[in-house]
Nucleic acid binder design. Structure first.
Lengths: 210, 189
DNA sequence: GCTTTAAAAAGTAACAT
DNA sequence: ATGTTACTTTTTAAAGC
């Protein structure tokens, strides 16, 4: 019986040690990404469930915590891409992505589908655009979804294109380069999405040629 | 007018097979004698032999086991393995046993002939994963046959993990039926 | 777990012209 | 601004680290 108690105590200790290290990692990530406390709390909950399901065994605490933070952001509809989070992690995007998929499948974490509109406020504020323009961009995204133009597309790219169009329509024009940088996608992606939206949604733009 | 139900079409794109020769092979000797053989043991233990026809790449190991990839059919696998053995023999490598060939994986592309609402499909299908931020297709794990399907909004599908062509056919028919039942496939040929 | 090989799908990216 | 090449996802065996 003593043996059983020792095994249990040892397991408990290793879990506590793991969690202590995970909290340090979480605080570091939270500070670098500037995430609100509610998201960090949720990320820790997710990490705890992963730990209790033995999903951390054989994986780095860093990768699993990064995946938990990404899952928490997604749950709470915060516009953070996986690449952004992986940037602050020693492990690469590939490893964090793998841990994230593990959380979805094995820890039965449910995450809402990414919505391009969720990215609009953040990109809009980075570009110092008006509330009206942000609202217009969200309308465009809504139209795009109804027209079936969003399937398979990167939500950040769609948000960038919608903002690019909305800004022009509201006389607050930003270049494709500026929008692309704020949305963390390439100019080519902004251009491709923008062209498709204008064509398929019959969007009329003020004479902005050249 | 007679309604002709548009059946999904599919095409096998890649067949991977393992081959057992039941004899050890000297990869160094093969690499020396066959100039286009690629062999870097520090990088990978297998020697790579590419055939132009059928267009395949075969990995050869010192244990006498091989992995043939790139064939478009099981018949092409047979041809490729025969060619490899003939090539080895022509370079003085003795092959005495008949190769035991086993298909390990079949990859096929398919067309459902319609568009798919991936967002709704992701909610309705239990074993699915849809992360457009990462990959444009919806990943669906089918239990019978046990294959994985990558489904795109265009109605194009990739089926992988099958070991028999029959499994590909069933998987494509199953997903076609399933998506129709769930009302997420909009057929428009 | 990684290394290597092939192949499709559609999207995004990097670098060249 | 367009074109090319390349990478993302999935599957599968092989021998060894």
């Amino acid at each position: 019986r003593l043996r059983k108690w020792q095994v249990r105590a040892r397991a408990q200790n290793s879990m506590e040690r793991n969690l202590a290290q995970a909290v340090i990692e979480l605080e570091r990530l939270g500070a670098q990404l500037g995430l609100p406390k509610a998201v960090l709390d949720r990320a820790l909950e997710i990490y705890r469930s992963a730990l209790n399901s033995n999903l951390v065994r054989g994986r780095s605490i860093e990768s699993v915590m990064a995946a938990a933070v990404y899952a928490a952001c997604r749950e709470m509809r915060l516009p953070r891409t996986l690449d952004e989070i992986a940037l602050y992690t020693r492990a690469g995007r590939k490893d964090v992505a793998r841990c994230y998929r593990l959380l979805l499948r094995e820890a039965s974490i449910k995450v809402p589908l990414p919505n391009a509109a969720d990215f609009v406020p953040r990109i809009g504020s980075l570009l110092r655009l008006s509330g009206a323009t942000i609202k217009r961009a969200m309308e465009i995204i809504d139209q795009a979804r109804n027209a079936g133009l969003t399937a398979g597309k990167d939500p950040a790219g769609l948000a960038a294109a919608a903002i690019y169009i909305a800004a022009i329509q509201n006389g607050e024009m930003r270049t494709q380069k500026e929008v692309a940088r704020a949305a963390k996608v390439t100019e080519v992606t902004v251009r491709n999405r923008y062209k498709e939206l204008v064509k398929r949604l019959d969007i009329k733009l003020p004479i902005t040629k050249k | 007018m007679i309604k002709i139900a548009k059946q999904p079409t599919y095409e096998i794109q890649n067949v991977v097979a393992s081959v057992t020769l039941n004899q050890r092979l000297d990869l160094e000797k093969i690499a020396e004698r066959i100039p286009h053989a690629e062999y870097s043991p520090e990088q990978f233990p297998g020697l790579v032999l590419r055939l132009p026809r059928p267009k395949t790449a075969t990995l050869i190991f010192s244990s006498g086991k091989m992995v043939c990839t790139g064939a478009k059919s099981e018949a092409e696998v047979q041809k490729a393995v025969k060619s490899i053995i003939k090539l080895l023999k022509a370079h003085g490598i003795d092959i005495k046993n008949e190769p035991i060939i086993e298909v390990q994986n079949i990859v096929a592309s398919a067309n459902l002939r319609g568009t798919v609402d991936l967002e709704r499909a992701a909610f309705l299908l239990e074993n699915s994963m849809y992360e457009p931020e990462q990959f444009p297709g919806l990943i669906y794990r089918m239990s019978d046959p046990k294959v994985v399907l990558l489904i795109f909004s265009s109605g194009k599908v990739v089926c992988t993990g099958a070991k028999k062509e029959e499994e590909v056919r069933r998987a494509v028919d199953n997903i076609h039926k399933l998506l129709k039942e769930q009302g997420v496939l909009f057929e428009e040929p």
